[in-house]
C-alpha cells in the first residue's frame, strides 16, 4: 500500500443536465506515492482545480474510482470528515477564507472542527505557525492586518493545523512577490522532508514546479497527457507544446546549447543540474 492516492478513469462534468454542461475531466488516471511531491501543471482551464477538489470529496466523480489512503471515495457511506482531515486542501488565494478575530483562532478553526482537545489545538496551532514561519507574537493579531504573504501563510497554517497526511495546494504562489514565493516553496519542501507529508502542488510556473516536485503531471483539456519525473516530462517537446506550456528557463537554455552543437543533455530542469552539465563540457 504505497500509493496514497489512486485514481482510475475519473470523469467529471460541471452543471450536468443543463445547457451549460461542461466536461472538465475525462478519463483521468493518476497514482501518487506516499511521501512524494507531485506537481500538476497545465494551462488555465485544463481542469487542475477540478481534479484536486476530488481528493477530499468536494466534488463527486461522475465515473471512475478514487482511493485516498485506503478510503474509497466512490462508496455510498463515505465519512467525509475523516477524509477531509487526512487531505488538507489549500485553495487558490486561500487568504480569502480567513474570518476569525485573531490569527490564533483562525488557525484553530480546523482542529476545533475535527474535535481536537484544547491541549492538542494549542499544540497544533503552535506547530503549524512554526512550520509556516509565523512568529509567536502574531498569534493575537487580526488576520486582516497582515501583509499578503503573511495572510497566505496563515491560511495555509490553518490547513496544516489539522495535520493532514496529504497536503494539496492550488496555485499557492499566485500573486506573491518573488521572495515570499521562494520562502513558501522552501517551507513546503521542508514540510515534506520533516513531517513526511505527501504534497500535491498545482502551478503554472514551470521553474517553481521542477525545483520542488519529484513527479510531474501535465494536464490539457481535462486529460492527463503526460506524467513522470521532471526530466522525463520535459524531454517530450510535443507534449509540452500541445499543452500550451513552456519549458523551464534553464531547460530552454540547454535545448539551445544542444542546437548550437554542444554535447549536452538537454532535458535537465533543475538549475543546479544544468550548471553541472555546462561545467562538465569545459
Amino acid at each position: 500500500m504505497d500509493h496514497i492516492i489512486d485514481i482510475s478513469s475519473l470523469s467529471y462534468t460541471y452543471m450536468k443536465g443543463t445547457p451549460y454542461e461542461k466536461l472538465a475531466l475525462k478519463d483521468v488516471n493518476l497514482t501518487v506515492a506516499s511521501g512524494d511531491i507531485v506537481g500538476i501543471i497545465g494551462s488555465t482551464g485544463s481542469g487542475k482545480s477540478t481534479l484536486v477538489q476530488h481528493f477530499n470529496g468536494l466534488l463527486k466523480a461522475d465515473s471512475g474510482k478514487i482511493i485516498v489512503d485506503g478510503i474509497d471515495l466512490t462508496q455510498k457511506k463515505l465519512d467525509l470528515k475523516d477524509l477531509r482531515k487526512k487531505v488538507g486542501l489549500v485553495f487558490q488565494y486561500p487568504e480569502y477564507q480567513l474570518f476569525e478575530e485573531t490569527v490564533e483562532d483562525d488557525i484553530a478553526f480546523a482542529p476545533r472542527q475535527f474535535g481536537f482537545s484544547e491541549k492538542e489545538i494549542k499544540y497544533s496551532v503552535s506547530s503549524a505557525m512554526k512550520s509556516m514561519h509565523l512568529s509567536e507574537d502574531m498569534k493575537k493579531r487580526s488576520p486582516f492586518s497582515l501583509s499578503g504573504g503573511e495572510m497566505r501563510r496563515t491560511a495555509i497554517a490553518g490547513v496544516l493545523a489539522m495535520s493532514p497526511s496529504v497536503l494539496v495546494l492550488d496555485e499557492p504562489t499566485a500573486g506573491l512577490d518573488p521572495f515570499s514565493k521562494k520562502e513558501l516553496l522552501n517551507i513546503i519542501s521542508e514540510l515534506n522532508r520533516e513531517k513526511k507529508v505527501t504534497v500535491i502542488i498545482v502551478s503554472h510556473s514551470m521553474e517553481e514546479v521542477v525545483e520542488i516536485a519529484n513527479k510531474i503531471v501535465v494536464m490539457s483539456a481535462g486529460k492527463i497527457i503526460s506524467s513522470g519525473t521532471p526530466e522525463e516530462v520535459f524531454s517530450d517537446e510535443e507534449v509540452i507544446k500541445s499543452a500550451r506550456l513552456l519549458f523551464p528557463e534553464c531547460t530552454e537554455l540547454m535545448i539551445e546549447l544542444k542546437e548550437a552543437g554542444l554535447p549536452v543533455k538537454y532535458n535537465l530542469c533543475k538549475v543546479e543540474d544544468c550548471i553541472e552539465e555546462i561545467v562538465k563540457i569545459f
Partner: peptide
Amino acid sequence: KIVKAQLSRG
C-alpha cells in the same frame, strides 16, 4: 469557493 474552502477545514 468560500464554502468549499471551509468545508475542507472541517
